[in-house]
Design a binder for these strands. Structure first.
Lengths: 167, 167
DNA sequence: CTCCCTATGTATAACTG
DNA sequence: TCAGTTATACATAGGGA
């Protein structure tokens, strides 16, 4: 939508990223407003920058009202998709959970140290590597689980999706 | 943005309004996603139709987390924020810690959910993507911090180490 | 950040099957 | 209701103030 097409990934140049953020943020809010007016719906939008600055939009008077409505939307809802997933994937999800748990512990043991801030570069790199290793493990477990529980048509779809995600 | 310009008011024809809603809703969500990816920010979006149907989008953690963050954004913050903004120099370590904190929260919120086991494949992929994004962020911040606080000899060492890690 | 400018890429209004 | 098609209106990348 500009002089050049840009690819959908984090803009690395910080200055450029910020300019784009300003432009697109206002564009997004404009569109949110248009949707709410044209189609007579309630819209709530929040944006947090990585520095903790907040931008928001809401169609009505208060975003907090929309949030309340959102939260109350989920009361008495959590039994519906139980039977579909539970039986088939129980084992692989078990393993998955263990992995996540270990990952959690690893991170916690580092982050909760009083002098986390004083971690030196080597420690950080070490931690990153651990994260990455766990992530890889989780991924491969998921892929395995997917492959085991799927028809060949689904496998084809997955393969395509995976190839897509590489591009 | 179409054959004709339409004015910014509620579309009266119900059928037309619904068609427009479907198109613009997906457009809005797409733009929200693009903003979050390109500019590396957290985005939360909720849409309630007048018939109570809910559509939502969020960039990172579950929307509930973004909402929590939104709500806590207004608690005892009106004075401390000033200091954070003015102390720009101390930010890299701060931000690094915040990132790890967020990563932790993200994982926790998923693992501790009672129905974590019911995560479907899409959710898993989503979680993985989040992990990866956070990891990338942390890495780049570390590298930035390293570069700022080092002599050129150290920078050379780091560069060598980074190249090594790619092999 | 905000505003301007222009060339382009996108979103979408109206229409059709 | 749900996909395509097409012509237009809009949004925005890049560059500058």
């Amino acid at each position: 939508m500009g002089r050049k097409k840009i690819e959908l990934k984090r803009i690395e140049d910080m200055c450029n990223r910020h300019v784009t953020f300003c432009k697109r943020r206002s564009g997004l809010i404009k569109k949110a407003r248009e949707l709410s007016v044209l189609c007579d719906v309630e819209v709530g939008l929040v944006i947090f920058t990585n520095r903790g600055r907040l931008y928001e939009f809401c169609s009505g008077d208060s975003l907090l009202n929309i949030i309340k409505r959102y939260q109350s939307h989920f009361e008495g809802r959590s039994e519906s998709q139980n039977e579909v997933d539970t039986k088939e994937n129980e084992e692989s999800d078990e393993t998955l959970m263990v992995s996540f748990g270990k990952l959690l512990q690893t991170i916690q043991s580092h982050v909760e140290e009083p002098d986390f801030k004083k971690l030196n570069v080597n420690d950080m790199v070490h931690l990153e590597n651990q994260l990455e290793a766990s992530l890889d493990k989780i991924k491969s477990q998921r892929v395995e689980a997917m492959m085991e529980n799927s028809s060949w048509i689904d496998k084809m779809d997955m393969a395509i999706a995976m190839v897509d995600s590489q591009l």
